[in-house]
Amino acid sequence: MPMPLSIPEPPPTENASKDKVTNKDASQNFATYVYQAKVAESFRSVSVTWCKNTTEHFVSMSVEKPFDENKLTCKIDLESGQSWGKKGLKSFEIEGARVDIFWDFRHAKFSMNPQPCSGYYVALVYKKEVLLLLGDLENDAYTRTKSKPSLEEATLLSKKENVHGKKLFCTRAMLEEGKPEHDVVIETSLSGPDDPEMWISIDGMLASRIMNLNWKFRGNEIVMVNNLPVQIFWDVHDWLFNDIGSGPALFIFKPGFLEHTNDPNSREWTERSEGSSKYDLIEENPSTGSFFHFLYAWRTD
């Protein structure tokens, strides 16, 4: 039976009101991917967090331990000035079995995002099988680990990230299973003589225009991407009614329809969220069996 669904808290972020960021320089500084992988004969949650801010730049991988709040975690410093510090291996034990995490960032290339765009790998290995492989250097990873791909591939359950900006917020979201991520741009007009508005574009095409945000600061719509439905949920209450930097707007992108309703035009999301400061409808929970992208958009001016 599916567990009750609730909205997750936003990941940590720097104080946006103190660290002003221009539209040109706005970038992600925190992204967490949650996978489900079969580790030590059981399906477990594997979280991968990429973080870059003024004090540190790292990636961490955590593996869930059943009946234990503490996770087994490997943290890798991506700012190491020595090439030997960017290649390594960490091993730990789960239920008497050895689990290895291999990584190589010696040739990694970065853009504005906390994660590299190429030239790296991170591999989670158990009993000579690669359970989860990140990066583009797949051949190097299999050669070094002397392992083969797992027969049961890890499943991506959710992505959470922070973005900063004034009027423009950009991200990349998986809107089709097994396909490349799509470019998503959220543009806003929150001040001026006209009522506040918001536009959401996918791959350069306008997908949704939300007018009268003072009345529609929470809601949802279904848009079509390559003839497939994508649900978009939003809560921009903090943008409109609280001080800048006090809290983010929340956007959720979900391919397909929510499993609990057969009505694609259901207003359950809106009705259940009215009068509430936090949604209680969605959580990145393996029992839901579907993918969610959570975007926390922080205004900086």
Rank of each mutant, 00 (worst) to 15 (best):
F217S: 02
D238T: 15
S189E: 12
G178Q: 08
T188V: 14
E153P: 10
M174S: 12
V225Y: 11
A173F: 02
G245R: 05
R172I: 02
P180A: 03
P248E: 09
L240I: 07
E161I: 05
D235W: 02
K166F: 06
K179E: 07
F241W: 04
F217N: 04
F169K: 09
T171R: 10
G219F: 03
R209T: 11
L228D: 08
W239D: 05
S158G: 13
L151K: 14
W199A: 13
N242E: 12
L206W: 02
D243I: 03
F233D: 05
M224V: 10
L156D: 05
P193K: 09
I200F: 06
A154R: 06
D238I: 01
L240T: 06
D195Y: 06
K160Q: 15
L151G: 15
W234S: 00
A173S: 09
V185R: 12
L240V: 06
F217K: 00
S147H: 08
R144I: 11
N162T: 07
L228E: 14
M211I: 11
P229S: 04
I232S: 03
D238E: 11
P196I: 00
E152N: 13
F217A: 01
V163C: 14
E177Q: 12
A154H: 07
V236E: 05
E152V: 12
N214P: 04
V163E: 09
N212Y: 04
V185P: 00
E176R: 15
N214K: 09
A154I: 04
R172D: 04
G178N: 04
F169W: 02
R172K: 11
M174V: 09
I222G: 11
V163N: 11
S208V: 13
L228M: 15
W199I: 15
L151S: 13
V185M: 11
S147K: 07
E161R: 15
T171K: 08
N212R: 06
G204R: 10
E161W: 10
S189Q: 11
L190N: 02
I222N: 14
E152Q: 14
R172L: 04
V184S: 03
W199R: 15
R144V: 12
R218K: 13
N227T: 12
S208G: 00
V163H: 08
N162S: 04
